[in-house]
Amino acid sequence: MATFELVTGLQRDQQRRCVFLVAKGTPIADEAERLGIEVIDTGELDASHWTMRRRRNPFFALKRLPARLRLLRRIGSPFIVHCNDILEMQSFGFAAKLLGGKVVYHHHALNRMIFPNRLLVGVADAVIAVSEICLQAVAFVGADKARYVLNPIEVGLVDRGAARSRVCAALGIDPSRVLAGFVGNFWERKRPLFFLEAAAAMLAKRPDLHFILFGRRADYEIEDLEARAQALGLGERITFAGFLMPAEDNIAAIDLLMAPAVNEPFGRTPIEAGLLGTPYVATDDAGHAEIGRRWGGGRLVPLQDEPGQFAETALAVLAAPDEVLLGPSARAAVVEDFSIRAHAAAVEAVYRRLEGARQA
């Protein structure tokens, strides 16, 4: 999402030509074309279905190097390759350097900086970090290379009542219930099991609650989470919804966003909740801690707290949401900080510095 928003801003506000190097026939390619972004087919559709371990194999990168060099030559020179993860640095970072291109690495993860990762990141001419904790993780490249730039997060005007009606109708939920939600794929660090345990503790004290998990399988299978929910006594008071469109409805429809994730690089959902007028409760850790302290809109729960303690904080926020919701001026400040225009301008400044260095 952040990449699509960045490219939208670069093309619209900075008049910069942007090209997606991606396999045709993938959801990313389809969405890029829908948004009017130029797409060059990598011809690697088969690899998009491989496991990450297989795709990270350096022998695959070497095998594809000649084809990737041809793709980059099609773009024309000079060019900047902007990579969003370590795998893309392996895929196109080295290829770009071989052709004299500049490379930007956009760091938005807290993966371990083992030697191969440090080597790949070190190839970049500039590193953009999306949060303070991400910036700390790439400090080894030097202050002259690394810069902190907030990801763009924009949401349109959403009628919360209408969103609630749409979501409840789609999922068969009684709209009179108080709705608490989890938004994110079911990775270990997102702590969906923690969410279920907190939900059970909340339901014991507020029987009018209904819980919705908007997300897809990852480290956890949905069937395993469903079985755990039933064992905790959540019964028909929990719904596994996948993701509904428009995405804003997932947060606007609920009365409380519960974000128990740990080691979160930044996280869009608390910011989106603040803009949509939905209070949140999040773990006081990593990127979520930064969000809670800098922009507010919800309440942070100490990292060491158990699900029952998380539940107590969540119930307190539900009882008095106005105590944490952003006011008009605070919301306007968030809109400006996370605007596509501001993000594109900051990234364009990085590009121009690299282009100036090339000319010098």
Rank of each mutant, 00 (worst) to 15 (best):
R164M: 08
W50I: 07
G287A: 15
E336M: 05
I212D: 05
A282T: 04
A319W: 01
L135P: 07
Q230F: 05
R16E: 02
F60G: 03
V158W: 01
H107E: 15
A349P: 03
R55W: 13
R358A: 15
L203W: 11
A349V: 09
E236N: 14
D174W: 03
A162K: 12
F310P: 00
L193C: 12
A273E: 01
P116Q: 03
L99Y: 03
G76L: 12
R64P: 01
L257M: 13
Y220A: 05
P260V: 09
E221S: 13
V334P: 04
R293N: 07
G9H: 09
S48A: 14
P260S: 07
P66F: 03
S165N: 10
A139V: 02
L275M: 04
R352E: 15
F211D: 02
Q11W: 07
F338Q: 05
R299K: 13
I173D: 03
F240R: 00
P302A: 14
I80P: 04
L325F: 11
L325K: 14
A261Q: 08
I212Y: 10
G277Q: 06
E188R: 15
R228H: 13
E348F: 09
F4M: 11
L72I: 06
A316K: 04
G142Y: 09
P27Q: 00
A201S: 13
P321I: 07
M113H: 06
A253E: 05
G25Q: 00
R358W: 11
G296T: 12
